[in-house]
Design a protein around this nucleic acid. Structure first.
Length: 272
DNA sequence: AGTCTTGTTCGACT
DNA sequence: CAGTCGAACAAGAC
């Protein structure tokens, strides 16, 4: 499940593999709905001969700035991008392939077909990037106190803070000792400080471990070279139901918050 | 066959 | 009108 650290890992790898500068020689669309609102024929026509000028990330979006157009992708749950040779046979669940004049190609695979590619579309409304210097304690405090939602759905909502998903929200809330159903405006000063600290700490740790690969086979997150990340070995709470809390040895429980499976330690994370 | 998975959007409600 | 929240949806594995 690609969240900010997984998309950032893909980005760094694409930069290392020198994808910037590649020229698009063709586009293959193997499942038309992958291209949100755009007929497959116009992709081929429009993108051919454009160069990749830069690659960036915003929230969970991976953005390719081309000579004329802006191409971007949201991987949702099971979307994967792999750098392959142009003559590599079509992969299972492969829905799109960008062919480059060098002979390399960027392959997009998505078992559940929830991910989408966009061309010159506006990005969704996205909040602050949690790994920038703009993400200050004051900013977070202001954001939290101006809402009264439960903290978990607040953190999952991309329009407030961009990039967190179900895995890292559970991890962050455990780290900051906050109950996922705590109301944003009811957090103590100390909890806000812990949250402000935990978000970048956990995201950076996950990035340095090249992301979290959970699940099996096709549904598992893989990087550009089809390798697994290693952050799953460092998860404290996510999918650890019944295990002991690494901090206090209480039994980790699973509940539903805003319809999402949610893991927490009932001793460390109590409602204020 | 029903349940489970997640990110996002939409509409209903206060 | 704004904030909040639950339902719905995407599609496939088990």
């Amino acid at each position: 499940m690609p969240e900010l650290p997984e998309v950032e890992t893909l980005l760094q790898e694409l930069l290392e593999l020198q994808l910037v500068g590649e020229t698009i020689a063709g586009v293959g669309i193997y499942w038309p709905n992958v291209a949100e609102g755009i007929p497959a024929s116009s992709w081929e026509k429009g993108l051919k001969n454009q160069k990749i000028v830069s690659i960036t990330r915003r929230g969970k979006f991976l953005i390719f700035q081309l000579t004329k157009d802006r191409l971007f992708v949201h991987l949702r749950m099971t979307g994967k991008v792999h750098l392959v040779s142009s003559d590599e046979p079509l992969q299972k669940h492969e829905h799109l392939r960008l062919f480059f004049s060098s002979g390399r190609a960027l392959s997009y695979q998505d078992q559940r077909k929830f991910g989408r590619w966009y061309l010159n579309a506006p990005l969704a409304e996205l909040g602050i990037e949690p790994l920038t210097k703009e993400f200050t304690l004051d900013y977070l405090q202001q954001l939290l106190s101006s809402h009264s939602m439960q903290i978990k759905p607040f953190l999952l909502n991309q329009k407030y803070i961009a990039g967190l998903g179900n895995i890292y929200v559970d991890e962050v809330l455990w780290e900051a000792k906050i109950h996922p159903e705590e109301r944003t405006h009811s957090l103590s000063k100390k909890q806000v400080e812990q949250l402000h600290q935990a978000i970048p700490t956990i995201l950076k740790s996950a990035i340095s471990n090249k992301g979290t690969s959970l699940g099996k086979h096709q549904s598992n997150y893989r990087n550009v070279s089809k390798k697994e990340g290693t952050h799953q070995n460092l998860l404290k709470i996510f999918r650890k139901t019944g295990n002991l809390c690494p901090r206090c040895n209480s039994k980790i429980i699973k509940i539903k918050v805003a319809q999402r499976g949610t893991h927490l330690c009932p001793f460390c994370q109590k409602i204020n």
